[in-house]
């Protein structure tokens, strides 16, 4: 399934899509596959597979801790592709979330080719704006991959239009100015940003950063096409006494959030 189909399906059901993030390689490569499978079975519509990076500059402490552990355990870009393959086999679309340097190092064209071969749907690039680099978009287009770029509350109208024109699949709207991590409240800026973004594109707009519970998911589902949850899932794994308990906790949260995106 592609991300577009997943968003259309949710729209047809009169709800927002639930997008869940987990990094590949935590608590182990196989452990991350298990946790993601459980997330999908419990109601996550689109999976973001995090590619661990040594300098994750828009991630807060929760995701930093998990990706540090994944890197120390030796997780490679090939492992990330293996996780993508396993997720794609569940039928849920898998997009990779990656900082630019690991993809640059792998080679934009080679990564696009290998990700497509693994059944991946696209890539979210948190530190690559469409105007930063000439190599990624052509490589992704050639292999039919979604290019998901971020818009922020500080983005000008001109930049939002430039960004959404380069997006395929969906647009990622960051709800607040800040790094990843759960927050008590998702900023008022999010609704305004979604409206400004929708004024420029027909693509679905998903909102991320700070969402951790069903009530917040429901609040965002009222105005956005998708709700992205990352740190809250990762925290379930970090706080679990053992990997099996982590998988259970992830599934419980996914079920709870799946209820949230259906309340609007």
């Amino acid at each position: 399934m592609t991300t577009s189909v997943a968003f259309e399906k949710a729209r047809a059901e009169g709800r927002a899509a639930l997008v869940g993030y987990l990094p590949a390689g935590y608590p182990s490569v196989d452990g991350s596959i298990e946790a993601i499978r459980a997330m999908v079975e419990a109601g996550v519509d689109v999976v973001e597979v995090g590619l661990p990076y040594s300098d994750p500059l828009i991630d807060g402490p929760v995701i930093q801790t998990a990706v540090d552990a994944a890197l120390r355990a030796g997780t490679t870009t090939k492992d990330v592709l293996r996780v993508v393959e396993a997720v794609a086999a569940t039928g849920a679309p898998a997009v990779v979330m990656s900082y630019w340097n690991p993809l640059d190092r792998y080679g934009a064209a080679a990564f696009a080719r290998d990700l497509a071969a693994a059944g991946g749907s696209g890539v979210i690039t948190p530190d690559l704006t469409p105007d930063a680099d000439d190599t990624w978009i052509p490589a992704a287009r050639e292999h039919g991959l979604d290019t998901v770029f971020l818009v922020a509350p500080s983005s000008t109208e001109e930049r939002i239009a430039m960004t959404t024109a380069a997006c395929r699949g969906f647009v990622y709207a960051t709800s607040v100015m800040g790094v990843t991590g759960t927050r008590e409240q998702v900023g008022d800026a999010a609704a305004g940003l979604v409206a400004r973004t929708k004024a420029t594109t027909q693509l679905p707009v998903a909102v991320g950063l700070g969402v951790s519970n069903a009530a917040q998911a429901a609040e965002i589902a009222a105005y956005a096409d998708g709700v992205v949850v990352g740190s809250a899932f990762v925290r379930r794994l970090l706080e679990a006494p053992d990997p099996a308990a982590g998988v259970t906790a992830v599934a419980e949260l996914a079920a709870d959030l799946a209820g949230g995106v259906r309340t609007r």
């Binding site: 630019w100 930063a132 818009v151 500080s154 930049r159």
Partner: peptide
């Protein structure tokens, strides 16, 4: 050189 940063920082 260039600018490889999150969109949130571009305005600043």
């Amino acid at each position: 050189g260039g600018r490889y940063v999150p969109e949130a920082l571009i305005a600043a």
